[in-house]
Each structure stands twice: as structure tokens, then as C-alpha cells.
């Protein structure tokens, strides 16, 4: 009964289910890729001190003598309750990553709050003045800037604002002891860099989404009825392009993830991305697993939001044939 009265709700629920399923598959991949580790997990932890007795004792301690499937469910169950195990350095992963996760989320959400409205406005401007100077300028410059490596953008920003103008510190090493204003002040450059990195993608995609709607017959009809071009874009094209725009925005927020890793390293920002790179260098497997799980969950989450928004805004998708 529910299905008939709330088709959107049931559709959304089934999407969330699919999202959880893919998260489950990803967790499987993350967990079992560790068993590919050359040599045993225990001797990797012990490093140089890996005498056979020590390895056996460590395996006993970590429960490695139990079957892999059993260990997987134990790990997954613990992860679901927020316990991500213990790093090789001996600290619980959650104490290491918890504050860093908060830092990364702060960085990403401030960026998103600025980027999303700005990108949509610029995309609309491009579509409205298609083929004119402003469109050509924005299209070419965004095409160029999606080809820039993130670290180049970061270093140019650092060079201009931290070294030459000396407005902001080049290192964004924030600590919880600092007050909010000081933290925000130090976050300006990483945020600016991230903004530049994702804005170009978003503007291009927004423009493409509106333009693809602009080629449909009813837009042509509205033009023939003598509506002004601005009115056609705002009244006819935009409402129908909201679905595609929302989904490209969400997808680009997912793209933020890889940008965040590089930019955190450049600005020495204490976030999850930097923690992951450190863990990869030290081959600290539990931390890598935890970071991968966090990033994958965020990625799947953003994709899920994109899906749900495009379903809600396009009733045709509710009745797939």
C-alpha cells in the first residue's frame, strides 16, 4: 500500500538500500585486499622483531588464527559501532582519526557552501550567454583549470597569498586549542584552493546540463512564442535541469575527496587525507582501512544523494520501463 501512496519514498528507500549494499561490497574489498599483503599481517606489524614465536603470539592476540570470514564480520560489526581497531603504533584508530575527520568535514563543507551556489550561477550565466565572450572565456578557462594538477593550484595560491602578499599563513596546521576565528583564518588558503579545483568542474557540468535541456522542443516553442532568452533559461530550462545539475553537483562533491587528500598534504592541514598518506607511507594497515572506508562511505553517500535528487526532480524515472 505504501508503495502506491509514496512512490518517491519507496524509490528513495530502495536507493539507500542499494547504497548500503555497495558500501558492504566496498568493505569486503577493503578487508580482503589486506589478506593479499605479502608475508603475514602479524609479521608486518612486528617488523624487524618478527621471530616465529612473536608472530604466533601476535596472531593469537589479533585473532588471526580465526577464519577470515569470521574476522571480517567482527571487523565490520566493530566498525559499525565506531570502533575501527588499533593502529600499528598502538593507538585506537578512532582516537587518531576522530578529530581529523571533524577537521576534514569542516574544510569540505565550508568549501561546498561557497562552491555550489557560485558554480550554479556561473553555469547559468554561461548557458544564457552561450557563444558570447563571457561564455567562451569561462568555458576555456574552466577547461584549462580542470587540467591543472591540484598541487599546482595549491602552490600558486600559497605563493601569491602567503609568500608575496603575506596575508595568510602558508601552513594550515590548526589545533583544537586555537579559537574559532584563528582556525578559520588558517583555513582560508586550503578552502580557496579546493574552491578553485572543484568550481571549474561544476561550472562546466552545470552549463552542459542546462544546454542539453535547451535543445528540447518546448524550449524552442517558448522562443517562438517570443519569450526573452533570459526568461527561457530561467523559466523553461532551469526547472527541468535541476535534476541533472543536482546530480553533477553531488558527483563533484565526491570529486572533492581526491582534492582534499593532496591539498591537506600541501598545507599540512590535520585531516583524514593527510592521515591516510602518512599511513600509506608507514604501511599502517588498520588506519588505511579505516580511511578508505570513510572516504568510500562519503563517496557512495554523495552518489546516493545525486541519485535521489534526480529521481525526485524527474518523475519519469519513478516508473522505469
Amino acid at each position: 500500500m505504501n508503495k502506491i501512496s509514496h512512490p518517491i519514498l519507496s524509490m528513495a528507500v530502495s536507493r539507500v538500500g542499494l547504497g548500503l549494499l555497495s558500501l558492504l561490497i566496498v568493505s569486503l574489498v577493503i578487508f580482503f585486499s589486506v589478506s593479499l599483503l605479502p608475508g603475514s599481517y602479524a609479521s608486518a606489524i612486528l617488523g624487524q622483531n618478527a621471530t616465529p614465536e612473536a608472530v604466533a603470539a601476535m596472531e593469537e592476540k589479533l585473532g588471526l588464527n580465526q577464519p577470515a570470514i569470521w574476522r571480517y564480520f567482527a571487523w565490520l560489526g566493530a566498525a559499525a559501532t565506531g570502533d575501527l581497531g588499533t593502529s600499528f603504533a598502538g593507538r585506537p584508530v578512532m582516537t587518531v582519526l576522530g578529530p581529523r575527520l571533524l577537521n576534514t568535514i569542516t574544510l569540505a563543507s565550508i568549501t561546498a557552501l561557497i562552491a555550489v551556489p557560485l558554480a550554479i550561477v556561473l553555469g547559468i550565466v554561461c548557458a544564457r550567454f552561450r557563444g558570447r565572450f563571457i561564455d567562451k572565456f569561462l568555458s576555456t578557462s574552466t577547461l584549462a583549470s580542470i587540467s591543472l594538477p591540484e598541487f599546482l593550484v595549491a602552490y600558486i595560491v600559497m605563493m601569491v597569498f602567503a609568500v608575496k602578499l603575506q596575508w595568510f599563513p602558508s601552513m594550515a596546521g590548526i589545533r583544537s586549542s586555537m579559537d574559532l576565528g584563528e582556525q578559520l583564518y588558517r583555513m582560508v588558503l586550503p578552502i580557496l584552493t579546493l574552491l578553485l579545483v572543484i568550481l571549474a568542474h561544476m561550472v562546466r557540468n552545470t552549463r552542459a546540463a542546462i544546454l542539453s535541456v535547451m535543445s528540447s522542443p518546448y524550449v524552442e516553442m517558448a522562443r517562438l512564442q517570443g519569450e526573452s532568452e533570459g526568461r527561457v533559461v530561467m523559466r523553461q530550462a532551469l526547472p527541468n535541469a535541476i535534476g541533472p545539475i543536482a546530480s553533477v553537483v553531488a558527483l563533484n562533491l565526491a570529486y572533492l575527496i581526491s582534492g582534499v587528500v593532496v591539498i591537506e598534504v600541501v598545507f599540512v592541514y590535520p585531516g583524514v587525507g593527510q592521515a591516510m598518506i602518512d599511513a600509506v607511507r608507514n604501511r599502517d594497515v588498520p588506519v588505511i582501512q579505516a580511511c578508505a572506508l570513510i572516504f568510500a562511505a562519503a563517496y557512495i553517500g554523495f552518489n546516493l544523494i545525486a541519485d535521489v535528487i534526480s529521481i525526485i526532480s524527474n518523475p519519469r524515472l519513478l516508473h522505469p520501463r
Binding site: S33, S258, V261, I288, F295, Y299
Partner: peptide, 11 residues
């Protein structure tokens, strides 16, 4: 369904 960079780093 895993971001590329993260997957590459892990592997």
C-alpha cells in the same frame, strides 16, 4: 564505487 585515488593508495 570507490574513489580512484583512495583505491590506488590502498592497493
Amino acid at each position: 564505487s570507490v574513489p580512484d585515488l583512495i583505491f590506488i593508495l590502498m592497493i
